[in-house]
């Protein structure tokens, strides 16, 4: 048997060996944790407090409102928090009123309280604070739990979070699948997460959402602020039984 060469497929440029996929032109790298999670975590807070279904209704209401707005050259995806950064005050009111009309607003305010009250630049802060007082300690704790739960894009909460990008497009009717395409059942991710069907659906959601995210070309202002704010809010924590 012919022996495989070391670094097969790599291309040498000076003293560097470039892997095959990075030789392709126009490749841009996005990180789920670094860039996508901060954009989607507001929905994670809603999923945590209420349910995945409630999160879907939240997005559905936004899509219903924004469908009437003038078309943009670069369409937004309202699953991302940055999509709300430069909408007008009037448009913010429209969304808030729609959530209120569908009896969603109160729970959204409670769910998003950590982001509204602890993160100055959160673009959905127009929802306003919750009706009851919550201590900073509790808010930080909730944020920590939520981020920890959604850190892994291969586990259900992370998969669902990524799926909201595609879900929003489906709701808006801006994405269509060819009739001959064998689309997996997306509900299986939540209902039967251990099955092959769920794994196929998860892979489909991950790849399509990551591709869509790349097309949105969002700036990294919010992700950068979000992660660095985390360092201001709470100190490093060493794992148990680890001494500095």
């Amino acid at each position: 048997m012919k022996k495989k060469k070391n670094l097969e497929g790599y291309k040498q440029r000076g003293k560097r060996f470039i892997p095959p996929l990075k030789q392709l032109p126009g490749i841009r790298e996005y990180s789920y944790v670094n860039d996508m999670l901060p954009e989607l975590i507001w929905l994670g807070l809603i999923h945590d407090r209420m349910s995945y279904n409630f999160g879907a209704r939240t997005l559905e209401t936004v899509v219903g409102v924004t469908k009437k707005w003038p078309k943009l050259d670069n369409p937004k995806n309202f699953a991302t928090q940055s999509a709300y950064a430069d909408i007008t005050e009037g448009q913010k009111s429209e969304i808030k009123n729609a959530w209120n009309k569908h009896s969603l607003l109160n729970e959204i305010q409670h769910a998003l309280a950590p982001l509204v009250l602890l993160y100055d630049n959160f673009s959905l802060s127009f929802v306003g604070p919750p009706s009851s007082l919550i201590s900073q300690e509790v808010l930080i704790q909730r944020m920590k739990q939520c981020v920890r739960k959604h850190l892994n894009k291969y586990e259900t909460p992370g998969i669902v979070l990524l799926g909201t990008i595609m879900l929003t497009r489906l709701m808006a009717g801006t994405i269509k699948f060819a009739a001959n395409l064998d689309i997996p059942d997306f509900n299986s991710v939540i209902e039967k997460p251990e099955t092959d069907e769920a794994k196929r659906a998860a892979a489909f959601l991950r790849s399509s959402s990551m591709a869509e995210f790349g097309l949105l070309s969002l700036k990294n202002i919010w992700p950068k602020y979000f992660w660095n704010r985390g360092a201001e809010l709470s100190r490093c924590e060493y794992p148990e039984n680890t001494l500095l």
Binding site: L7, K15, P19, E29
Partner: peptide, 10 residues
């Protein structure tokens, strides 16, 4: 991820 790792021998 492995596919993104360059190797520098300098």
């Amino acid at each position: 991820l492995e596919w993104a790792i360059e190797i520098n021998i300098g």
